[in-house]
Design a protein around this nucleic acid. Structure first.
Length: 632
DNA sequence: CTAGGGTTAG
């Protein structure tokens, strides 16, 4: 087999710890470049170093053996390395194992596999450590074929009872998606420990089998923090943040202390739920536990505060970070965009590039969001062009979605349509949906019908598109067409997702569904609403019933309108929180025009800040206006 | 010198 390392050069060691070669008075300096000791890249250079060592009576143990291994393993000098290792006085396999570990954990795990074959070729004695590192490399590469070969070696060498190796093999099969093999191995293992179970739980989660994962989790004879964390992270990943939080509470009750990874997972759950109280509590816990400088935790905190509507807190976390990654910048830029603060998002981006931080695709998604939310057409165009030209980032379908959204919202519907037709990748439901949304705002029935033709094919079960279309017809007073859309929905078995809003008061989440009269405080809520309504009317509020699609009398439409979930949640919030405190509401759908107008007026009447987290952005109502500047 | 969990987008 031809063995060539995946990269010709290893990066030099960060800090040479032998300083006497750097000393200019040393006789070695004229024979040996000072940095060569740690950076030799060929057997020839190695021999130069070696010769110098002999001349200066330097012990061979000073040689960086990982480098010797790397340089010799893939050249004809394999036996040269063997000779050196012999003289260093360490068992040969010990040194090769260190090389394997470095390769397996570095950025070229393939080299570990290649080295393994070299070791076999030279009849080097293989031990259990060798197998574990090569197996790790196979897992990293999702290379189950080579993994099976190593597995066979493990059997042949009689390591069946080595639990470490069994776990590594289990990890190999499960992480490569060979769940059948993994399952069989798991069931046949003569002994298992907590790691065995954790591997299974984690991998089942990764395969989207959350039930299977939780089933195993429940059966575990003992659990470690990692078991809890895997399961919590699993619930977050599959969109069940409530379950994640519940499990976290159980974990605390079980007396297990959260570590950094747990904190990240729970904070992510808080972001999804908009659970600000818990988020703050975890933030304090994290600081108390000394996790304050963990970059990933800070990144997740930024996102948590952003999604809980506390942009200022997010900024504070960002500002106080000692070290920031591209994720930190992207999270902050995306957060500003979500809150409609486009100028600041763009400014942050230039600051980012000024300090030499390289943006990635997600950064640009945030920027494009900022532009589309605020109608910055030219800037959006510029950034879209720049990402490929200046940063070699290939736009993904999400970026195209943003661009179509940008054009469509701004009313450039023809451009949006042309843009879709010229896309190098197949447009998805989000892309056509963005065009459809623009058609509603700008009343373009023809293009809306074009969009829906594609949407019926791409995403026929998504109720949102039908609703938007019937909205468009309703606005044009084409009632037969709205009826037709309703029939289409019935035929397809699609039902409109009920709108709900939630508000947290004193740590308790109150949920309101549109039209809901089951809340114990319903009577008081309606009374308070009627009072508010009078004041709103004095300020010029007129119910906008065009958003009600049901076929009914006008005054019934008004009734439906006034039972929209965000209105219920808001009134409940006004009744149950101290005056002047901000009110935060979460909503599963987008805010309708009527609620938007109503909330603006109410914010002025009651002199409160009302923050609403919509399906795709934030609205911050204050003194009668909204942070989205009515562009959404 | 050996095994298992984590962040931005949706």
């Amino acid at each position: 087999m031809l063995c060539t390392p995946s990269s010709l050069y290893l990066p030099p060691s960060p800090k040479p710890n032998q300083s006497y070669l750097r000393n200019s008075h040393s006789p070695t300096s004229e024979h040996l470049r000072t940095d060569l000791l740690h950076t030799f890249n060929s057997p020839f250079e190695l021999k130069q170093v070696h010769a110098c060592f002999i001349k200066t009576s330097t012990p061979l143990s000073v040689l960086p053996l990982l480098r010797v291994g790397f340089v010799c393993a893939f050249t004809s000098s394999f036996s040269y390395a063997q000779q050196i290792f012999e003289r260093v006085g360490k068992p040969e396999i010990f040194v090769w194992n260190s090389c394997l570990k470095a390769f397996a954990e570095g950025d070229s795990p393939i080299d570990a596999i290649l080295l393994f074959y070299r070791l076999r070729q030279f009849d080097v004695f293989i031990d259990s450590f060798t197998c574990s590192f090569v197996l790790k490399a196979c897992s990293q590469l999702l290379d189950v074929s080579n993994g099976r070969i190593v597995h066979a070696f493990v059997e042949k060498l009689g390591f069946q009872s080595n639990l470490f190796l069994q776990n590594t093999i289990l990890h190999l099969y499960s992480s490569c998606g060979a769940m059948g093999d993994a399952q069989m191995l798991f069931e046949n293992m003569s002994q298992r420990d907590v790691v065995t179970w954790n591997i299974m739980v984690t991998q089942l989660v990764k395969r989207d089998d959350i039930e299977g994962a939780y089933n195993l989790f429940s059966q575990m004879p003992e659990r470690s923090v990692r078991s809890w964390t895997s399961m919590i992270a699993g619930f977050v990943q599959c969109g069940k943040p409530k379950e994640a939080v519940d499990l976290f509470v159980q974990m605390e009750e079980a007396g297990e202390r959260a570590n950094e990874v747990t904190v990240v997972a729970v904070l992510a759950a808080c972001s999804d739920l908009g659970a600000l109280d818990l988020g703050r509590r975890i933030h304090e816990y994290s600081n108390r536990s000394g996790f304050g400088r963990n970059v990933r935790i800070s990144n997740t905190l930024i996102d948590m505060y952003v999604k809980c509507g506390c942009l200022e807190d997010a900024c504070r976390v960002f500002d106080e970070m000692e070290e920031r990654t591209v994720v930190s910048w992207s999270a902050m830029i995306g957060g500003l965009a979500m809150h409609g603060r486009a100028e600041e998002a763009l400014r942050l981006f230039s600051k980012m590039t000024q300090i030499g931080m390289k943006p990635n695709g997600v950064t640009f998604l945030g920027l494009l969001h900022a532009c589309s939310h605020m109608g910055l057409i030219n800037e959006g165009r510029r950034y879209f062009a720049s990402m490929t030209r200046d940063y070699a980032i290939i736009p993904q379908i999400e970026h195209y979605g943003c661009m179509v959204d940008l054009y469509s919202r701004a009313g450039l519907l023809q451009e949006a349509h042309e843009f879709i037709m010229n896309m190098p990748i197949k447009p998805n439901g989000v892309v056509w949906g963005a065009l459809l949304g623009g058609c509603r705002v700008h009343n373009n029935i023809e293009l809306a019908e074009e969009a829906i033709r594609h949407l019926l094919e791409l995403d026929p079960l998504n109720d949102g598109y039908y609703v938007v279309l019937s909205n468009i017809y309703a606005q044009a007073e084409q009632w037969e067409d709205t009826a037709r859309v309703r029939k289409l929905m019935r035929d397809q078995g699609v039902k409109k997702t009920p709108g709900w809003s939630s508000i947290t008061v004193d740590g308790v989440v109150h949920e309101f569904v549109a039209g809901d009269e089951t809340h114990p405080k319903t009577e008081e809520i309606f009374q308070r609403w009627e009072k508010l309504l009078e004041e709103m009317k004095l300020k010029g509020y007129v119910p906008n019933t065009s958003v009600v699609l049901l076929d009914m009398e006008e005054h019934d439409k008004v009734k439906v309108l006034h039972r929209h979930s965000e209105k219920l949640a808001l009134v409940f919030g006004l009744m149950n929180t101290p005056p002047r405190t901000p009110i935060r509401i979460m909503k599963n759908l987008r805010v309708c025009e009527d609620c938007h107008a109503a909330l603006k007026l109410i914010s002025a009447i009651v002199n409160r800040e009302i923050v609403v987290r919509d399906r795709n952005r934030f609205h911050c109502f204050k003194n009668g206006s909204c942070s989205c500047r009515d562009y959404w």
